Computed example of a mutant assay.
Amino acid sequence: MSPETEEYGGGFKTALICDDNSEMQNVINSALKELKYKIDISTSSADTLEKVRFNQYDVIVLNENFAGSSPENNEVLKFFQNMPMVSRRHIFLALIGQNLKTLDNMTAFSKSVNVAINKSDIPNLANILKKSIDDNEQFYKVYKETLRKLGKR
């Protein structure tokens, strides 16, 4: 298996960064490392789709303008919006954008993501992700435990 599609074992929490801007990548990378994630960085929409096909990521941080796309026409976001819920439920998807309201549940719901984050709040990314991921894990805790007991996950 190539390094681009490396699978992680041993209980690592994994994350994928989908952002073209190297400064943003560094900030996102630092926040995810602080939260103890093993991190991959995607370089294009095709690269993202390949990585997601071969790896199970716990967290994906996506810039709405990733790979030259617009917020309305983001191929990666559309992929996750159309993913069957049985698979999508196991991925925490954070969307970063210029006009998004941070931690706004209606915005997140309308975009089919777990959390919306405004670019201006990136300095607080580790705290935003920690709170949002913890809330998400608490929300799905009983559901995931039931799946495990039934041998489905």
Rank of each mutant, 00 (worst) to 15 (best):
94 A>F: 05
94 A>E: 04
94 A>Q: 02
95 L>N: 06
95 L>I: 05
95 L>Y: 08
95 L>T: 07
95 L>D: 04
96 I>K: 00
96 I>S: 08
96 I>L: 02
96 I>T: 02
96 I>Q: 07
96 I>A: 06
97 G>E: 00
97 G>N: 00
98 Q>T: 12
98 Q>E: 09
98 Q>Y: 02
98 Q>L: 13
99 N>D: 01
99 N>K: 10
100 L>P: 04
101 K>F: 11
101 K>Q: 14
101 K>V: 10
102 T>W: 08
102 T>H: 03
104 D>V: 04
104 D>F: 00
104 D>W: 08
104 D>K: 09
104 D>Q: 09
104 D>Y: 02
105 N>S: 12
105 N>W: 07
105 N>Q: 13
106 M>T: 04
106 M>S: 07
106 M>I: 08
107 T>F: 06
107 T>K: 01
107 T>R: 06
107 T>E: 01
108 A>D: 06
108 A>K: 13
109 F>L: 02
109 F>Y: 03
109 F>R: 09
110 S>P: 02
110 S>R: 03
110 S>W: 00
110 S>T: 05
111 K>G: 06
111 K>W: 11
112 S>D: 04
112 S>L: 04
112 S>A: 00
112 S>I: 09
112 S>P: 01
113 V>R: 02
114 N>T: 13
114 N>V: 01
115 V>K: 02
115 V>S: 08
116 A>L: 06
117 I>G: 11
117 I>T: 02
117 I>F: 08
117 I>Q: 03
117 I>R: 07
117 I>Y: 04
118 N>E: 11
118 N>W: 12
118 N>V: 12
119 K>F: 07
119 K>I: 12
120 S>Q: 13
120 S>A: 15
121 D>R: 04
121 D>G: 06
121 D>Y: 02
121 D>T: 04
121 D>W: 01
122 I>Q: 10
122 I>A: 07
122 I>K: 04
122 I>N: 03
123 P>N: 10
123 P>F: 11
124 N>G: 04
124 N>L: 03
125 L>I: 12
126 A>G: 00
126 A>P: 01
126 A>I: 13
127 N>A: 01
127 N>V: 05
127 N>Q: 10
127 N>H: 08
127 N>E: 03
127 N>K: 00
127 N>P: 03
128 I>H: 10
128 I>S: 11
128 I>Y: 00
129 L>M: 08
130 K>Y: 08
130 K>T: 01
130 K>G: 07
131 K>R: 00
131 K>V: 03
132 S>P: 00
133 I>G: 03
133 I>M: 13
134 D>P: 03
135 D>N: 01
135 D>H: 10
136 N>M: 14
137 E>K: 13
137 E>C: 14
138 Q>Y: 15
138 Q>P: 12
139 F>T: 14
139 F>C: 07
139 F>Q: 13
140 Y>Q: 10
140 Y>D: 09
140 Y>G: 14
140 Y>E: 15
141 K>H: 14
142 V>E: 02
143 Y>F: 13
143 Y>H: 14
144 K>S: 14
144 K>D: 15
144 K>M: 15
146 T>C: 04
146 T>K: 07
147 L>K: 06
147 L>W: 11
147 L>Y: 11
148 R>A: 14
148 R>P: 09
148 R>K: 13
148 R>F: 12
149 K>C: 07
150 L>D: 05
150 L>T: 10
150 L>G: 03
151 G>A: 13
151 G>C: 11
152 K>F: 08
153 R>C: 14
153 R>H: 05
153 R>L: 14
